[in-house]
Amino acid sequence: MADGLTKSAARNIFYGGSLFFFLLFAALTAHSHWYMVNTSTDKEGLTESVVEGKHIWEKNMCINCHSIMGEGAYFAPELGNVWERYGGHQNPEAARAGLAAWIRAQPLGTQGRRQMPAYDFSDEEMSALIDFLEWTDGIDDQDWPPTPAG
């Protein structure tokens, strides 16, 4: 293949081309960063409680059962739009109560159903976690997922 191409030419194309595409990628990433902070996510809504909620999400490694915006373990339901699924857009208070009650009811212990462990959250922690899920639902993510089922 490519008999006209010498090894050193192939090497130079590799280094030059890679550098070009890396710089382009880095520039687009920088713009995406700016776009996320200012346009697609709720800047004012990113309160201390939401940040605390993200911390609780990470501390309990929810990502290794659930997915969030399609990324995670696919073992348990998508939570990026769980706020929508619980009717948070229509009735936020009912959604908060519903989510908290569901988490507090674990483990269900039902035979033949995947088990979610019990998490001993304080009211404050529970509220922060739900704030995080509500904030995440508000991210403008090109209308994904296609159905509320997530």
């Binding site: 090497r11 194309i13 590799f14 081309g17 890679s18 995406s32 776009y35 697609s40």
Partner: peptide
């Protein structure tokens, strides 16, 4: 060199397939 060139030329911007639904442009 040809193969690794093709890998990075496609793979760097190919990251974009993870940026569809996470709030990116």
């Amino acid at each position: 060199y040809i193969i690794v060139g093709l890998s990075l030329f496609s793979g760097l911007l190919g990251t974009g397939h993870h940026y569809y639904w996470i709030g990116a442009p």
